[in-house]
Deep mutational scan, measured.
Amino acid sequence: MMAYMNPGPHYSVNALALSGPSVDLMHQAVPYPSAPRKQRRERTTFTRSQLEELEALFAKTQYPDVYAREEVALKINLPESRVQVWFKNRRAKCRQQRQQQKQQQQPPGGQAKARPAKRKAGTSPRPSTDVCPDPLGISDSYSPPLPGPSGSPTTAVATVSIWSPASESPLPEAQRAGLVASGPSLTSAPYAMTYAPASAFCSSPSAYGSPSSYFSGLDPYLSPMVPQLGGPALSPLSGPSVGPSLAQSPTSLSGQSYGAYSPVDSLEFKDPTGTWKFTYNPMDPLDYKDQSAWKFQIL
């Protein structure tokens, strides 16, 4: 009977010793046993002879290597770790002494450095960015050149030099007046198309007034536009458009034309069986010896 009264063996659950049927240790109110408190290391007290050895090595170098620390530790009968900690504390003490010396050398008012006064946003004049500046400075420094007289040679050079070769001289006033084509001369031969040399188009003023001019072949195509416009036809070669000034309004060009419109200028042929003959000019830059190549039959 006494065997049943004795408590059973101890069981360990999660490293906790349980005594038989008792489960009081598993209750929430019972805390787990805490780790033992780490003991504080005792402070090391250095003797005068030990301090002399350490100070002598510190005077040589503030960062001794492990071999120098072990050698000193053997002399003063201390572990190497204590020597390492002593050098660490000695360097910190040396830095603190240097900072105190710097503070003593500075004057009393030198510690508080005078800061520059901050400028207020409204006091300083700042350039306004509302208006974009002129990058080319046209509004201040540029002045347009004065327009020359209508009959000045410089204007003629600016007008005619675009179309004339570089080897030719500017046309005088008398020749510029001949550039304007007359109405009857352009409409006299509506079906004849003559190819003149390129030099005649640039230099010869008579080429624009003769039936064999460069633009005589364009007349049949330009004249039928007159009834559609409801007024006189516009002429690209009329009046002052080739003269001194090219800047004319469309209203000033509306009254200039080749001449009176005639039914002869239409595109319809009077004789459907007729042929169109292209007159060959020996001055043509295209060297075609066979003139029969310039004739064709309209079917």
Score class of each variant (00 low, 15 high):
Arg69Tyr: 12
Ala181Arg: 11
Lys93Ala: 14
Tyr67Val: 07
Pro125Gln: 08
Pro107Asn: 05
Arg98Glu: 06
Pro21Thr: 10
Glu52Val: 06
Cys94Phe: 05
Ser152Ala: 09
Thr159Lys: 08
Pro224Val: 15
Pro184Val: 09
Pro211Ser: 03
Leu51Thr: 11
Gln111Arg: 09
Ser199Asp: 01
Gln28Arg: 13
Gln96Met: 03
Lys88Leu: 15
Thr154Phe: 14
Ala92Asp: 15
Pro220Arg: 11
Lys120Thr: 01
Asp130Arg: 05
Ser223Thr: 07
Ala17Met: 15
Leu234Arg: 06
His27Gly: 08
Leu267Ile: 15
Pro172His: 11
Phe215Gln: 00
Ile76Gly: 14
Leu16Lys: 00
Tyr191Arg: 01
Glu173Gln: 09
Gly20Tyr: 12
Pro7His: 09
Met26Glu: 01
Asn281Ile: 15
Val242Met: 11
Glu268Lys: 10
Gly243Ile: 12
Ser128Arg: 07
Ile138Met: 04
Val30Gln: 02
Gly239Asp: 01
Gly255Gln: 05
Ala17Trp: 12
Leu18Met: 01
Tyr63Trp: 15
Phe46Ile: 12
Glu173Asp: 09
Pro33Gln: 03
Thr187Ala: 08
Met225Phe: 11
Thr159Asn: 02
Cys132Asn: 08
Ala92Asn: 12
Thr154Ala: 03
Tyr11Asn: 01
Val83Tyr: 15
Pro170Trp: 09
Gly20Trp: 15
Gly122Trp: 07
Asp271Lys: 12
Met193Glu: 00
Trp276Gly: 00
Ser139Gln: 04
Leu222Ala: 00
Tyr63Asn: 12
Val131Glu: 04
Ala174Trp: 12
Ala192Leu: 13
Ser245Ile: 14
Ala121Ser: 07
Lys60Phe: 08
Gln39Thr: 09
Glu55Tyr: 11
Phe269Ser: 00
Trp163Ala: 00
Ser257Asp: 03
Lys102Met: 03
Ala177Met: 12
Ser238Asn: 03
Ser188Pro: 02
Ser169His: 02
Tyr195Cys: 03
Ala3Ile: 15
Gly20Asp: 04
Arg82Asn: 11
Glu52Trp: 13
Leu286Tyr: 05
Pro232Gly: 03
Ser235Met: 10
Leu222His: 01
Thr44Met: 15
Pro227Lys: 09
His27Lys: 07
Arg95Ile: 11
Pro220Leu: 11
Pro21Tyr: 11
Leu218Lys: 06
Trp163Cys: 01
Thr45Phe: 06
Cys94His: 07
Val180Asn: 01
Gly243Glu: 02
Thr187Met: 10
Ser161Leu: 14
Ile298Phe: 02
Arg37Asp: 12
Tyr280Lys: 03
Arg48Trp: 11
Ala189Cys: 09
Glu42His: 05
Glu70Ala: 12
Ala247Leu: 10
Lys270Asp: 05
Ser252Asp: 01
Gln100Cys: 09
Lys93Phe: 15
Ser185Pro: 02
Tyr195Gly: 00
Arg41Asp: 13
Val242Tyr: 10
Tyr258His: 02
Gly109Asn: 07
Pro147Ser: 03
Asp265Tyr: 15
Gly239Phe: 15
Gln104Asn: 08
Gly217Val: 13
Trp276Lys: 00
Pro240Asp: 00
Leu171Gln: 10
Ser235Tyr: 12
Ala35Arg: 07
Arg91Lys: 12
Pro190Met: 15
Gly148Ala: 07
Leu253Glu: 01
Ala117His: 05
Pro220Glu: 02
Thr44Asn: 13
Gly122Arg: 07
Pro144Cys: 02
Val264Ala: 02
Gly231Thr: 11
Lys120Glu: 03
Leu299Arg: 00
Gly148Met: 05
Ser141Pro: 02
Asn77Ala: 06
Ser292Trp: 15
Arg98Tyr: 03
Arg119Pro: 04
Gly137Met: 10
Gly231Asn: 02
Ser12Phe: 12
Thr154Asn: 03
Tyr195Lys: 03
Thr154Met: 10
Thr194Leu: 12
Pro149Arg: 09
Gln84Pro: 11
Ala200Arg: 06
Arg69Ser: 15
Pro127Thr: 06
Pro240Cys: 08
Phe215Lys: 05
Pro205Gln: 02
Pro144His: 10
Ser223Gly: 06
Ser124Ile: 09
Ala293Pro: 10
Ser292Val: 10
Met2Phe: 11
Gln28Ala: 10
Glu52His: 10
Pro64Asn: 15
Ser199Trp: 12
Ser164Arg: 08
Ala174Glu: 07
Asp140Ala: 01
Val85Phe: 14
Thr129Glu: 03
Lys88Val: 13
Arg95Met: 13
Lys295Gln: 04
Ser143Thr: 03
Gln103Tyr: 06
Ser164Gly: 01
Ala117Lys: 09
Gln39Arg: 09
Gln96Ile: 07
Phe87Asn: 15
Ser245Asp: 00
Leu51Tyr: 08
Tyr4Arg: 03
Val180Gly: 01
Ala260Val: 09
Arg90Leu: 13
Ala121His: 05
Lys295Asn: 00
Glu70Val: 11
Thr47Tyr: 07
Tyr11Lys: 01
Thr61Ser: 08
Ala192Thr: 08
Arg40Lys: 02
Lys120Asn: 02
Pro127Val: 09
Ala158Asn: 02
Arg119Ser: 03
Lys93Val: 14
Ser49Gln: 09
Ser213Phe: 14
Val30Trp: 11
Glu268Ile: 12
Leu186Val: 04
Ser34Lys: 07
Trp86Gly: 12
Pro285Thr: 09
Trp294Tyr: 00
Met26Lys: 04
Val242Gly: 03
Ala196Thr: 05
Val23Cys: 03
Tyr261Asp: 02
Pro250Glu: 03
Pro31Phe: 15
Leu136Gln: 04
Asn77Ser: 08
Met193Ile: 14
Ala114Met: 08
Tyr142Lys: 10
Val72Ala: 00
Thr47Gly: 08
Met2Pro: 01
Phe215Arg: 03
Gln39Glu: 08
Pro263Thr: 05
Asn89Thr: 08
Thr251Arg: 09
Arg119His: 02
Ser213Asn: 04
Arg82Pro: 12
Pro184Met: 12
Phe278Ser: 00
Ser206Phe: 12
Tyr67His: 01
Lys270His: 09
Tyr280Leu: 13
Thr273Ile: 06
Asn89Ser: 15
Gln101Tyr: 06
Lys289Asn: 04
Ser19Pro: 05
Ala200Asn: 01
Asp290Gln: 12
Pro135Val: 04
Arg69Val: 14
Ser182Pro: 05
Lys102Ala: 06
Ser254Cys: 11
Val13Asp: 00
Thr61Lys: 14
Met283His: 11
Ser210Asp: 02
Ser292Phe: 13
Lys118His: 03
Pro190Ile: 15
Trp163Ser: 01
Gln228Val: 13
Gln28Pro: 06
Pro125Arg: 12
Val23Met: 07
Leu78Tyr: 15
Ser254Gln: 05
Pro211Cys: 09
Pro236Arg: 11
Gln99Gly: 04
Ala3Lys: 07
Gln39Ala: 10
Ala181Leu: 09
Gly109Trp: 02
Asp290Leu: 13
Lys93His: 15
Ser254Pro: 02
Ala192Lys: 10
Ser182Phe: 12
Ala196Trp: 13
Pro172Tyr: 10
Met225Ile: 06
Gly8Ala: 06
Tyr142Arg: 11
Ser19Ala: 07
Ala15Tyr: 13
Thr123Arg: 11
Gly178Glu: 03
Pro282Asp: 02
Val242Ser: 02
Ala207Lys: 08
Ala192Ile: 11
Ala207Thr: 10
Gly239His: 12
Tyr208Met: 06
Asp140Gly: 02
Glu52Leu: 10
Met5His: 00
Ser182Thr: 05
Gln105Ser: 06
Tyr4Asn: 00
Asp134Leu: 08
Tyr261Pro: 05
Glu55Arg: 11
Val30Asp: 02
Tyr32Leu: 07
Phe201Cys: 00
Pro133Phe: 04
Val85Leu: 15
Ile162Gly: 00
Gln84Gly: 01
Lys289His: 03
Pro227Asn: 01
Leu136Ala: 05
Ser245Ala: 09
Ser266Gln: 05
